[in-house]
Design a protein around this nucleic acid. Structure first.
Lengths: 158, 158
DNA sequence: TTTCCGTTCATACTTTCGGGCGATTTTGGA
DNA sequence: TCCAAAATCGCCCGAAAGTATGAACGGAAA
């Protein structure tokens, strides 16, 4: 359950710990057998240092998260514009545009001002502004004229 | 001359070596003073291991080039295939729309702001505003979106 | 040459848009 | 029944759009 997840996420650290423990046991064992450190403490310590430096380097390499660099590749999609308009519901769903937003979009494309749209839909001007803002975001536009252009090319409006 | 270059290029490695040497001297000195390792070899070795692990990590972080993970993001660009557009010159003459005004109208329909249009046509913002106002009057519109709608229906723009 | 017209630009002002918050209420499904 | 998404509305502020008016300049037609 959780255990496996914890292990896999901290695999390197756990391996490091295990390695360290193992080494310590090995040293203890060596200590009992020979009296290495009596003669050559420097060599001994140097070896330890080297080994753990290596381990540290290995740890660092494994644990550092790579920087994510985003490369934007532009993909061109051609769209046929036909006079017999077929509403592209797929695109609407893909962009997450709601029914109400579509209504606002349609009226916007017909040249109505926000105030006029508000009047027509019996809601406040602020509401229309919110819908418009959401539309601009979803259509990746910063002006209503842009939004209209894009919506037309996506067959969201005639 | 060369020496300085060599030093700056291998700064981290040299620093590491110096640190190692220093530590070894320190240990030697400690060895002469006390008999630490007699009592607690594990602690001693553990400390060394920890220190050099840290050094290793530091070395690795300093020496290795930062990992970069490339993520390719596809950005879709929709391009409209306008098949058949026949410009209605008659209507343009009837409404008394000038060439320059038509240019502005086209850019407006493409979603450009007045400032952007001004930049593109190498004229001032005020000039574009004047053209726009004249267009609105000639097209009997009071907003750019309206003007665009009307112009499209009159086949002045695709 | 004089008179239009298109083009350019300016200043000053008002209105509309759009961004950036936050907030509450409806509502359609799990 | 409960939740998330949708819809609603508000406020503030700055940017953009649009209105009004005047003016200068050059080319083309009368």
């Amino acid at each position: 359950m959780e255990l496996r997840k914890i292990f896999s996420e901290n695999k390197h650290i756990l391996l490091y710990g295990a390695g360290l423990a193992l080494l310590l046991f090995l040293l203890k064992w060596l200590e009992l057998r020979f009296v290495i450190f009596d003669h050559a403490l420097e060599v001994y310590v140097g070896a330890i240092a080297l080994i753990f430096t290596g381990l540290g380097i290995w740890l660092a390499l494994k644990l550092t998260k790579p920087k994510v660099e985003r490369v934007v590749v532009e993909k061109e999609i051609y769209i046929e514009k036909s006079r017999d308009f077929v509403f592209n519901e797929t695109e609407m769903n893909r962009l997450g545009i709601s029914k109400r937003e579509l209504e606002v979009l349609q009226l916007m494309a017909q040249g109505f001002s926000n105030a006029e749209i508000a009047e027509r839909l019996f809601v406040s001007l602020n509401t229309i502004k919110t819908h418009a803002s959401n539309l601009f975001f979803k259509l990746d536009a910063s002006r209503r004229t842009q939004a209209i252009e894009k919506a037309k090319s996506l067959a969201l409006i005639p």
